[in-house]
Design a binder for these strands. Sequence first.
DNA 1: ATACTGACCGACCGGACGGTCAGTTTGCGA
DNA 2: TCGCAAACTGACCGTCCGGTCGGTCAGTAT
Lengths: 218, 218
Amino acid sequence: MSSSQSAPAPAGRSSGEQAILDAAVRLFSKHGFDGVSMRTIAQEAGVSKSNIYHHFRSKEELYLAIMQSSAAWLSELVDTLAEGGGSFEHRLRAFARAHMEHLFAHAMTVRLLLREVFTGGEKWQRLLIDHVVGDIVRRLRAIFENGQAEGVLRSDLDPGLCAMQILGSNFFYFQSYGMMKFIPEVASARDRAQYSEAMADILLGGMLVAPATAERSS
Amino acid sequence: MSSSQSAPAPAGRSSGEQAILDAAVRLFSKHGFDGVSMRTIAQEAGVSKSNIYHHFRSKEELYLAIMQSSAAWLSELVDTLAEGGGSFEHRLRAFARAHMEHLFAHAMTVRLLLREVFTGGEKWQRLLIDHVVGDIVRRLRAIFENGQAEGVLRSDLDPGLCAMQILGSNFFYFQSYGMMKFIPEVASARDRAQYSEAMADILLGGMLVAPATAERSS
DNA sequence: ATACTGACCGACCGGACGGTCAGTTTGCGA
DNA sequence: TCGCAAACTGACCGTCCGGTCGGTCAGTAT
């Protein structure tokens, strides 16, 4: 859990610069922008504070660089999420499971971006959505639209809304994972794969024992 | 949206102290602990910085006081969430809708606590769970257990896991609300009541058009 | 009048903050 | 081997931070 989880190195980065980026990602994802000082980053990276300013104009620019490369990196990884074929149900289960693994495998980066997506300013939200979130939503939505075209998915459902259900379930699980062990009522959900499977069961088949094709009443 | 959203005033609080608490809740919920200075709070509350230290020993204690009263306050409000009777389906829909309204009606307080629940230390998580989150989970779980006892809810589902689905959906919606307008694919979900209804439709009846009672396969 | 209290304030403290700058080291092509 | 740019450093700057201190003032019980 120590070395390799960070953004790519597109241009030739000096070892020092890379150390700075690694330390910054680690610290910012844990404590947020305001909770990390340049001195701490420098110390953690094993370089002088001045050296950071040699590579980055300001704290904001460093943060920006991290966010951008993280976003770009995650965006590429999203490509691997929904590459499979098979039935609608199989594709949806595969996507949900892959997305869940994806979140935990790159937890640091995800947490970093999540903070900005949920509490950041509009400009950041737009950027992140355009480059990361949008891709995921679009891909997932496509699965649901295909499902409707195949006649397998209920035609009265909004595909975008279905996508929200899957993503919401996964993101909430990801965010809650650390504290789930303190809630005995849901402690059984600590296994990711098991949870993902159960979630798909519910979303696909519903909760009711006698499925009356769910008439919608106000 | 200006005056009354804050914790209760259990003991006789001076107008100054209440102003401090109000300002602190507003600022902390927006910018987090590290993003707010005592000077800003004092200015926003219309009192001197020293006055804050007359009422609270330190910044941490002020934050603590806010979190505790917010948690206690929300905990009381939860009582109103699931007071109804009726069928399982009706109770679940009512809870989901009430919880959703609850989140948005007290957005500031919710955001304040959410930050600590998701990214705070273990001690804070335990406290918040014991006093707020636990209640909600337990209440919701009870609904599902009743549903199983009535034979309406599928017996192979874990009630705690079902609760996670409802809560996850609502919390994710709440957190994403600000940025949903930027994602055209889900822009149709901007209406809370409509979303809540659609979510309940999916969770209750499932997504598939031919419900085969969802055999679970690995 | 006296003594005491809680609410409140302006001035101030040491230290940490983001950021700058003059200068040294290092890697590398000519 | 020289030269030069890039990498890197330590000392330093002004500002803001959380927190303290001495003191004012209205109210109030004696």
